[in-house]
Design a protein around this nucleic acid. Structure first.
Lengths: 318, 318
DNA sequence: CTGAAAGCGCTAACAT
DNA sequence: ATGTTAGCGCTTTCAG
């Protein structure tokens, strides 16, 4: 059997409540006793039983995060931010990839054992999200819903920067390969795009989706392809290379997210940097605030264009 | 207040113990009563309180996994396998990236709230791992320790295949850019390498580590660079490209892991495919067996060479 | 097959 | 400032 609060109390010659207080309400016990207790705690290697504690407090000390696709490097980056901040806040984090099961089922399962959850780029409809948010404290990432905290990355501005960049290079015929239609990020990118590019899609926001998008884009004769995200842009690059089309001489390509590989591919990808890790940290902050009884809050983080070699002057432009 | 077992008992006109049994020991209660209870459970939306349950059983129904670097796509793949299998087994999974805090501290923290942990590619020394394994049921991934379950990917054979492939292409001067010296995978790769390549390193198993490795490799005059993993190989490719060195015409390059980007880079990378997702699933299987009182078990999964365009005939070889 | 009762380890009134 | 005590919601003997 593990060492319990009673063992500590006995050895420190105090009552269990004093031990409890020494540990979780330092102000309520005399410094000398507290030290004595702490010493015994260390000596015995006592670790409070979380189950017992939660049974009373109703708190688990855990946070949950649900992401749509861990294999998109965007999410590990977010997760890293979440985890480091959660760690600072003394919380452990449960994690789920929603390809494993339905998003709402996952959140519900999680809700039972965490104090709150970070829901990333949810594709659920508003009613479903609202229902979940009603059950458990929640912060949304790249998604909004009235009354629910959220952390947003400014996709509209990012996309506007992309279009402007392309325009400056002389591209007049631009095509956008869209992501999932329910996606908030996709819709915000459309806002930034306005009517400054044709639209194709929706496509899967993956490498293969990009390959398919490139195929379709080629038949439009556009000189610039704007992909929904970097993963797709990588697929676009790959397809163009297969077809012997040069980037950026023949066609310019842009992505979104600035994942690690955007800098490593050939040619390096012009893209929009997203404050992923920061977003993860802010999400936890908002969640913690919420748990402490604060109000729902919405925070938008800036994005910025990262020009690289996949964009160049439009052909025949001087 | 949430609905408790007592509410169910009252409404189903049975005792709490009957409800408890109906839920977790179906054999011990008459089918008719069980149905009645289940109906009330559904009607009330009753969900047993996990804290209360674990307080008694000592089980949490949770698994933990610690990985060294979530941003290496190798680990999300493992994580995916772990999660899908855990989900089937009715377990939720806690996750930690050991860049957030010291590995052993993380495992210890986790141990308090999971039934067992999967420890990936640990760099701790044997004593430390042994101590942890003593505290909590554990399965090691790509690491061995007597008496502890483990899932291994056959790095030695994979590396032997790489060297053989290079030899067939006429490369006689090969150089290996090593990974972390404490890494089991690294040491197994050395075994597969035997004395068939010079050795450089250790390097960080990252893109930047690869860049540095390439720099050093160039001064050796070798015609083939064998990187510890794909991330490094990507760095090698990048550095060579910067220096105007052609791959594979001037130098051949190989990686290890077959991450998604190995197929997407330029030129596509010859590498060794690792059964990552499978390994994650097997790890959970072994852990579950262990929790059920089974013996420690060791499973080695095969790897295989994936030849792509980054390797070619040695210069001057015909 | 079912019920009564005793806790699991801890926190939070309530006393002192 | 510290001790006493009553549970938190559940499982699990032990009786019947």
């Amino acid at each position: 059997m593990a060492v319990t609060i009673r063992d500590v109390a006995r050895q420190a010659r105090v009552s269990v409540s004093t031990v409890s207080r020494a540990l979780s309400a330092p102000g309520l016990v005399k410094e000398a006793t507290r030290q004595r207790v702490l010493e015994v705690v260390r000596g015995l290697g006592y670790e409070p039983n979380r189950a017992a504690r939660s049974l009373i407090t109703g708190r688990t000390g855990n946070l949950g995060i649900v992401v749509p696709d861990l294999e998109n490097p965007f999410y590990p980056a977010v997760l890293r931010g979440v985890q480091s901040r959660a760690h600072e806040a003394g919380c452990a984090v449960f994690f789920c990839d929603s390809r494993v099961a339905a998003e709402d089922a996952l959140v519900r399962t999680m809700a039972a054992q965490v104090d709150g959850v970070v829901l990333c780029a949810s594709l659920l409809d508003d009613d479903q999200v609202a229902e979940l948010a009603d059950t458990t404290p929640m912060v949304l990432l790249n998604r909004t819903l009235p009354g629910v905290s959220s952390v947003l990355m400014d996709s509209a501005s990012g996309m506007a920067q992309v279009v402007e960049h392309l325009a400056e290079l002389g591209h007049t015929d631009r095509v956008y390969l869209g992501g999932p239609e329910q996606s908030w990020s996709h819709r915000r990118r459309l806002v930034g795009l306005a009517d400054r590019a044709r639209r194709l899609g929706p496509f899967e926001p993956t490498f293969d989706g990009g390959v398919e998008g490139a195929r379709q884009a080629l038949s439009t004769g556009a000189t610039a392809i704007i992909a929904y995200n970097d993963l797709m842009a990588l697929g676009v690059l790959s397809h163009l290379s297969t077809r012997g089309i040069r980037v950026p001489e023949d066609i310019s390509v842009t992505g979104f997210d600035n994942i690690l590989y955007a800098a490593m591919c050939h040619p390096p990808l012009t893209t929009v940097a997203m404050p992923t890790e920061e977003a993860g940290r802010v999400a936890v902050d908002l969640l913690v605030d919420r748990l402490a009884g604060g109000p729902a809050e919405c925070r938008e983080l800036p994005t910025r264009l990262v020009p690289r070699a996949s964009t160049g002057k439009a052909p025949m432009f001087s």
